[in-house]
Design a protein around this nucleic acid. Structure first.
Lengths: 352, 352
DNA sequence: TTATAGGATGTTAGCGCTCACACTATTAGG
DNA sequence: CCTAATAGTGTGAGCGCTAACATCCTATAA
């Protein structure tokens, strides 16, 4: 057995072939588990692989097969808990199927070209499918226009589209949040929404309104935040809250800031004001008070996306699928019955 | 000008060449900004690129040049704020230099092979350099053994190593946290540490001890948590806290849980107990009370890592570098002067 | 004008792999 | 014992690109 060559170069399939005394093709067959390889030959090749410290080059393989075994993910705001969790889930689900992922992210509000550029970059890298986690409304059309004939799925509860869609059921989540508040006896409920160019934000806001109306309650227009706890804080501290006794915040972070701001104003949660969030951050259960919120199962989401994509890549074109994942209400201490006596001073004094 | 071919295949450099009426090599030269291309020709090629909707294949380019323009990142626990932020920072810094990143992550406690497997997978993908964000002690040796002759940097405040190292100065961070408590007048300070197989955790714990001793105070052995807010909660609720009036938690999440647990025990922060965290999560300023903590600049860290790596890839072997980034103390409301009257009952009654 | 430098382009090979096919051993069937 | 099938292996080409060299232009100088 020739000894390991002390070369800085990575061993190629030919090096292994020489070492094993076979042709490169035999090595390739062993690598790909082809049938019709004599057991003894296989063993010799495996040995040679070990000796040469060989690792197959997926680059060369991708070029030869025209399949990169790579899924491109375009993701907006990956620092946020939701997108980040989805990304992790995608990565691990993809690996199960032998795929790797490449992600391109942009957090900037958007100079308008990020989506196009991102997709172009992914295509350049060489991918077999695209997943877009672009929760902004504006992104969607761009994806549609730019989609380069690759299987594509959008992570978004888009009503109707000519693309695959996977998402957590935002409507149902928001609905159960609001229903929970109604059942506790609240009749004046406010909504702190995310930016209105985010799809999830719109759906939650709409579900909020409809659920309220279905219960015969009036719904004030939502207050608009920007997902950050800072924006929640501002609202909690100084927004005009009318006679509201409960607020449904569109994510946990804003809920956190809200509670903080409310406290500065002299309002206790849940005694004076009930708060429910959305996301169930891992830390939400240790907020003060622990936050009632809606848990989204991102791991399931990732699995569904990858399965859809892999099927589309390998199987061919299925009809456009639309998967919905059911979220779950986590009841904790930030919600309770409305206060008996309507507070008069607290809100007025806070003023503008 | 030939019209755009309605083929499902991606256009290759030859398609562009035919369209422009030049050889493929001329196209390649335009693509790579070679000098000595006539302006008119260049324009024609650019036109053809647009017409054919051509995107270069970095796979083919990688094969031809033997440079993948890809940096592999091996990352432990990417759901945690720190690692995730670092990852984002790396991605964006890499893009500045024309590189993309591939990350392989593992969150499992570790069956022992994740590091080896992860590196092997990255090598297979084809990478020019490796960055390891593996904060566990045990990982390090494995990286060392497995490192396949590629430029490698470890994100970790490792005392001495034969690899490049970039990190936030954990020691200095912990030191300023403890000093802050001492200056406030605390004399009995506890430390809630992270798992002891995490390097950062060890360094912070050690700095805690040394700073205390340097001030002539006694240091109790640290209480060990697992980074989660849950573990902080348990400690806050039922650990034996002696006569401590302040706790330095090794991350913000544990600090959050700690405050929650403390409250259940009937202890107020900062009146009865001062708390300082580590990380400065974006939400930490809205904890109740807003958390005094140590801010780490992950973006700087990412930039430094990539610059080191790119230099190593392109420049050759520089001596092993060791970059340190200075963290910053953020003073908020979770710390204050120690209570005047020593509390007797509160801690005893909490018991186990 | 003609040689000549160098600017502008084309040609060929090869990166590491797989595919399609060709070929050689083996075995089974008549 | 020979043919035919099949198991096992090898050969050549080509995936899309770039490096290196070859060739062709064009301007300038002698």
């Amino acid at each position: 057995m020739t000894s390991e060559v002390e070369s800085s170069r990575r061993a190629s399939i030919y090096d292994v072939a020489r070492e094993a005394g076979v042709s490169h093709m035999t090595v390739s067959r062993v690598l790909n588990d082809h049938p019709n390889i004599r057991e003894a030959t296989k063993k010799r090749v495996l040995e040679a692989i070990k000796v040469t410290n060989y690792t197959p080059s997926s680059i060369a393989r991708a070029l030869a097969t025209q399949k990169a075994m790579r899924i491109g993910v375009l993701v907006d705001s990956p620092v946020q808990y939701g997108p980040n969790s989805t990304l992790r889930a995608l990565e691990s689900a993809a690996r199960q199927h032998g795929y790797v992922i490449s992600s391109v992210s942009f957090s900037a509000p958007g100079d308008g070209e990020e989506v196009e550029d991102g997709i172009a970059e992914l295509v350049t890298q060489g991918i077999d499918a695209i997943c877009v986690i672009a929760p902004r409304l504006s992104s969607l059309d761009k994806v549609r226009r730019k989609a380069p004939g690759l299987p594509t799925v959008i992570v978004q509860s888009e009503p109707a589209t000519e693309m695959h869609t996977v998402s957590v059921d935002q409507r149902s989540g928001a609905e159960s949040a609001v229903k929970h508040l109604i059942e506790l006896g609240h009749t004046s409920i406010l909504h702190l929404a995310g930016p209105m160019d985010w799809h999830d934000s719109r759906v939650r806001a709409q579900a909020f309104q409809e659920t309220l109306e279905a219960a015969g309650l009036v719904s004030a227009p939502p207050i608009i935040g920007d997902w950050s706890s800072d924006s929640g804080y501002d609202v909690g501290k100084s927004a005009d809250l009318g006679d509201a006794t409960a607020i449904f915040a569109s994510n946990d972070q804003m809920a956190l800031g809200l509670i903080h701001g409310l406290q500065e104003r002299g309002l206790k949660v849940p005694d004076d004001m009930s708060i429910v969030g959305f996301d169930d951050l891992p830390d939400a259960r240790h907020f003060l008070p622990p936050l009632t919120t809606i848990r989204q199962n991102f791991s399931d989401l990732g699995i569904q996306v990858i399965e859809l994509l892999v099927r589309a890549i390998e199987g061919g074109v299925s009809p456009y699928a639309r998967e919905l994942i059911e979220p779950k209400l986590m009841i904790r201490l930030s919600t309770g019955a409305p206060p008996k006596t309507p507070r008069a001073g607290a809100l007025a004094q806070a003023g503008r």
